[in-house]
Computed example of a mutant assay.
Amino acid sequence: MSKWEAKEKRMEDIVTAAFEIFLEKGYEGTSMEAIASKAQISKGGLYHHFSSKDEILYYANAKLSEPVDNFLRQAAEQDNPVDGLRFYIRHYIGHWMAHQRELSFFFLTLTKAISCPETWPNYRDYYDNLIGTIAGLYEKGVANRQLSSHRTRARATTLVAALDGILADLVMNEKLSEAEVIGDFEDQFIDSILMR
Protein backbone atom coordinates (compact mmCIF):
# COMPACT_ATOMS: atom_id res chain seq x y z
CA MET A 1 0.00 0.00 0.00
CA SER A 2 1.43 3.38 -1.00
CA LYS A 3 1.80 6.24 1.48
CA TRP A 4 -1.09 8.07 -0.24
CA GLU A 5 -3.33 4.97 -0.08
CA ALA A 6 -2.47 4.48 3.59
CA LYS A 7 -3.42 8.10 4.32
CA GLU A 8 -6.71 7.73 2.41
CA LYS A 9 -7.50 4.54 4.32
CA ARG A 10 -6.73 6.27 7.63
CA MET A 11 -9.00 9.19 6.69
CA GLU A 12 -11.80 6.75 5.78
CA ASP A 13 -11.37 4.98 9.12
CA ILE A 14 -11.60 8.31 10.97
CA VAL A 15 -14.70 9.39 9.02
CA THR A 16 -16.42 6.05 9.63
CA ALA A 17 -15.63 6.16 13.36
CA ALA A 18 -16.71 9.78 13.68
CA PHE A 19 -19.93 9.12 11.79
CA GLU A 20 -20.87 6.31 14.18
CA ILE A 21 -19.99 8.20 17.35
CA PHE A 22 -21.63 11.47 16.33
CA LEU A 23 -24.85 9.61 15.54
CA GLU A 24 -24.71 7.57 18.74
CA LYS A 25 -23.70 10.31 21.19
CA GLY A 26 -24.56 13.56 19.40
CA TYR A 27 -22.16 16.41 18.86
CA GLU A 28 -21.69 17.38 22.52
CA GLY A 29 -21.25 13.76 23.64
CA THR A 30 -18.50 13.06 21.10
CA SER A 31 -14.85 13.54 21.99
CA MET A 32 -11.65 13.40 19.97
CA GLU A 33 -10.54 10.59 22.27
CA ALA A 34 -13.65 8.52 21.46
CA ILE A 35 -13.16 9.07 17.71
CA ALA A 36 -9.48 8.09 17.97
CA SER A 37 -10.34 4.95 19.93
CA LYS A 38 -13.07 3.88 17.51
CA ALA A 39 -10.77 4.54 14.53
CA GLN A 40 -7.99 2.57 16.26
CA ILE A 41 -5.58 5.48 16.04
CA SER A 42 -3.75 7.37 18.75
CA LYS A 43 -5.17 10.70 19.83
CA GLY A 44 -1.96 12.34 18.56
CA GLY A 45 -2.42 10.55 15.25
CA LEU A 46 -5.94 11.88 15.03
CA TYR A 47 -4.71 15.43 15.70
CA HIS A 48 -2.17 14.92 12.91
CA HIS A 49 -5.12 14.69 10.49
CA PHE A 50 -7.70 16.95 12.16
CA SER A 51 -7.35 19.87 14.55
CA SER A 52 -10.83 19.55 16.11
CA LYS A 53 -14.02 17.55 16.17
CA ASP A 54 -15.67 20.39 14.22
CA GLU A 55 -13.19 19.82 11.43
CA ILE A 56 -13.93 16.07 11.49
CA LEU A 57 -17.68 16.71 11.50
CA TYR A 58 -17.54 18.97 8.43
CA TYR A 59 -15.04 16.76 6.61
CA ALA A 60 -17.21 13.68 7.22
CA ASN A 61 -20.27 15.58 6.01
CA ALA A 62 -18.44 16.58 2.84
CA LYS A 63 -17.39 12.98 2.20
CA LEU A 64 -20.92 11.66 2.80
CA SER A 65 -22.34 14.35 0.49
CA GLU A 66 -20.12 13.43 -2.46
CA PRO A 67 -22.86 11.38 -4.18
CA VAL A 68 -25.17 14.42 -4.05
CA ASP A 69 -22.42 16.58 -5.53
CA ASN A 70 -22.11 14.02 -8.33
CA PHE A 71 -25.86 14.14 -8.96
CA LEU A 72 -25.65 17.91 -9.34
CA ARG A 73 -22.74 17.62 -11.77
CA GLN A 74 -24.53 14.93 -13.79
CA ALA A 75 -27.73 17.00 -13.86
CA ALA A 76 -25.81 20.01 -15.19
CA GLU A 77 -24.24 17.85 -17.90
CA GLN A 78 -27.59 16.68 -19.30
CA ASP A 79 -28.24 17.90 -22.84
CA ASN A 80 -31.86 18.58 -21.94
CA PRO A 81 -32.15 20.90 -18.89
CA VAL A 82 -35.61 19.56 -18.02
CA ASP A 83 -34.14 16.06 -17.87
CA GLY A 84 -31.33 17.47 -15.71
CA LEU A 85 -33.82 18.94 -13.25
CA ARG A 86 -35.78 15.68 -13.09
CA PHE A 87 -32.53 13.74 -12.66
CA TYR A 88 -31.46 15.89 -9.72
CA ILE A 89 -34.83 15.77 -7.93
CA ARG A 90 -35.17 11.98 -8.32
CA HIS A 91 -31.62 11.15 -7.36
CA TYR A 92 -31.43 13.62 -4.47
CA ILE A 93 -34.57 12.30 -2.80
CA GLY A 94 -33.82 8.67 -3.70
CA HIS A 95 -30.28 8.84 -2.36
CA TRP A 96 -31.18 10.28 1.01
CA MET A 97 -34.13 7.92 1.44
CA ALA A 98 -31.79 4.98 0.82
CA HIS A 99 -29.22 6.45 3.24
CA GLN A 100 -31.24 7.65 6.21
CA ARG A 101 -28.41 7.30 8.75
CA GLU A 102 -26.28 9.53 6.56
CA LEU A 103 -29.23 11.92 6.32
CA SER A 104 -29.39 12.07 10.12
CA PHE A 105 -25.70 12.96 10.11
CA PHE A 106 -26.35 15.64 7.44
CA PHE A 107 -29.00 17.22 9.70
CA LEU A 108 -26.68 16.97 12.74
CA THR A 109 -24.00 18.82 10.77
CA LEU A 110 -26.42 21.53 9.64
CA THR A 111 -27.64 22.02 13.19
CA LYS A 112 -24.06 22.45 14.39
CA ALA A 113 -23.21 24.78 11.49
CA ILE A 114 -26.10 27.11 12.32
CA SER A 115 -24.60 27.68 15.77
CA CYS A 116 -21.10 28.41 14.39
CA PRO A 117 -20.97 31.62 12.34
CA GLU A 118 -17.38 30.86 11.31
CA THR A 119 -18.69 27.93 9.21
CA TRP A 120 -21.31 30.00 7.41
CA PRO A 121 -19.06 31.13 4.53
CA ASN A 122 -18.38 27.49 3.58
CA TYR A 123 -22.07 26.63 3.61
CA ARG A 124 -22.93 29.83 1.78
CA ASP A 125 -20.43 28.94 -0.96
CA TYR A 126 -21.82 25.42 -1.19
CA TYR A 127 -25.43 26.58 -1.45
CA ASP A 128 -24.53 29.40 -3.86
CA ASN A 129 -22.96 26.81 -6.17
CA LEU A 130 -25.90 24.43 -5.78
CA ILE A 131 -28.52 27.12 -6.39
CA GLY A 132 -26.48 28.64 -9.22
CA THR A 133 -26.23 25.28 -11.01
CA ILE A 134 -29.96 24.61 -10.71
CA ALA A 135 -30.77 28.19 -11.76
CA GLY A 136 -28.54 27.57 -14.78
CA LEU A 137 -30.67 24.56 -15.74
CA TYR A 138 -33.81 26.67 -15.45
CA GLU A 139 -32.21 29.46 -17.50
CA LYS A 140 -31.21 27.00 -20.21
CA GLY A 141 -34.76 25.62 -20.24
CA VAL A 142 -36.17 29.14 -20.65
CA ALA A 143 -33.65 29.95 -23.41
CA ASN A 144 -34.55 26.69 -25.21
CA ARG A 145 -38.25 27.58 -24.88
CA GLN A 146 -38.88 24.41 -22.91
CA LEU A 147 -39.81 26.34 -19.77
CA SER A 148 -41.83 29.51 -19.42
CA SER A 149 -40.06 32.67 -18.32
CA HIS A 150 -39.77 32.99 -14.56
CA ARG A 151 -37.39 34.11 -11.81
CA THR A 152 -34.95 31.23 -12.20
CA ARG A 153 -32.79 31.99 -9.17
CA ALA A 154 -35.85 32.30 -6.92
CA ARG A 155 -37.25 28.99 -8.22
CA ALA A 156 -33.87 27.28 -7.76
CA THR A 157 -33.58 28.61 -4.19
CA THR A 158 -37.08 27.43 -3.39
CA LEU A 159 -36.41 23.99 -4.90
CA VAL A 160 -33.24 23.51 -2.83
CA ALA A 161 -34.99 24.61 0.38
CA ALA A 162 -38.03 22.44 -0.33
CA LEU A 163 -35.89 19.37 -1.06
CA ASP A 164 -34.05 19.67 2.24
CA GLY A 165 -37.33 20.32 4.04
CA ILE A 166 -39.19 17.33 2.62
CA LEU A 167 -36.43 14.90 3.59
CA ALA A 168 -37.19 15.22 7.29
CA ASP A 169 -40.89 14.75 6.60
CA LEU A 170 -40.25 11.68 4.42
CA VAL A 171 -38.21 10.06 7.18
CA MET A 172 -40.69 10.83 9.97
CA ASN A 173 -43.98 10.43 8.10
CA GLU A 174 -44.52 6.85 6.98
CA LYS A 175 -47.69 7.89 5.13
CA LEU A 176 -45.63 9.76 2.54
CA SER A 177 -44.50 7.84 -0.51
CA GLU A 178 -41.13 8.62 -2.06
CA ALA A 179 -42.59 8.25 -5.57
CA GLU A 180 -45.50 10.55 -4.72
CA VAL A 181 -43.19 13.20 -3.29
CA ILE A 182 -40.94 13.05 -6.36
CA GLY A 183 -44.04 13.40 -8.56
CA ASP A 184 -45.21 16.40 -6.54
CA PHE A 185 -41.79 18.06 -6.82
CA GLU A 186 -41.65 17.48 -10.57
CA ASP A 187 -45.17 18.87 -10.91
CA GLN A 188 -44.46 22.02 -8.86
CA PHE A 189 -40.91 22.75 -10.00
CA ILE A 190 -40.93 21.51 -13.61
CA ASP A 191 -44.27 20.51 -15.11
CA SER A 192 -46.04 23.69 -13.95
CA ILE A 193 -43.66 25.81 -16.05
CA LEU A 194 -43.29 23.57 -19.09
CA MET A 195 -44.09 25.32 -22.35
CA ARG A 196 -47.11 23.69 -23.95
Rank of each mutant, 00 (worst) to 15 (best):
E102K: 14
E102R: 13
L103S: 06
S104N: 11
S104K: 09
F105R: 00
F106E: 12
F107I: 07
F107S: 10
L108C: 02
L108D: 00
T109F: 06
L110I: 08
L110E: 09
L110S: 07
L110R: 09
T111M: 12
K112T: 05
A113C: 09
A113F: 07
A113S: 15
I114C: 05
S115I: 01
S115F: 08
C116K: 15
P117D: 01
P117M: 03
E118P: 00
E118I: 01
E118A: 09
T119P: 00
T119N: 13
W120S: 00
W120M: 02
N122L: 15
N122S: 15
N122F: 15
R124K: 13
R124Q: 11
R124P: 00
D125K: 15
Y126N: 05
Y126K: 14
Y126F: 15
D128L: 13
N129H: 15
I131P: 09
I131Y: 06
I131T: 14
I131H: 07
T133F: 02
T133G: 04
T133K: 13
I134A: 03
I134L: 15
I134E: 01
A135S: 14
A135Y: 06
A135H: 05
A135R: 10
G136K: 06
L137N: 06
Y138I: 06
Y138K: 04
Y138G: 01
E139S: 15
K140E: 13
K140P: 07
K140D: 13
G141E: 07
G141S: 07
V142G: 03
V142R: 05
V142A: 08
A143T: 08
A143I: 05
N144R: 13
N144A: 12
N144Q: 14
R145Y: 10
Q146T: 11
Q146W: 04
L147R: 04
L147A: 03
L147G: 03
L147I: 12
L147V: 03
S148T: 11
S149N: 06
H150C: 14
H150M: 13
H150K: 11
R151G: 01
R153S: 09
R153L: 13
R153C: 02
R153I: 08
A154W: 02
A154E: 09
A156R: 09
T157N: 10
T158E: 05
T158K: 03
T158V: 01
V160L: 04
V160D: 08
V160W: 04
A161F: 07
A161Y: 03
A161T: 09
A162W: 07
A162C: 11
L163G: 00
L163C: 03
D164N: 12
D164F: 01
D164E: 12
G165E: 09
I166G: 03
L167T: 02
V171F: 03
V171M: 07
M172L: 14
E174C: 08
E174V: 06
K175I: 00
K175R: 12
L176C: 04
S177K: 10
S177A: 10
S177W: 04
E178R: 14
E180P: 00
V181W: 02
G183C: 05
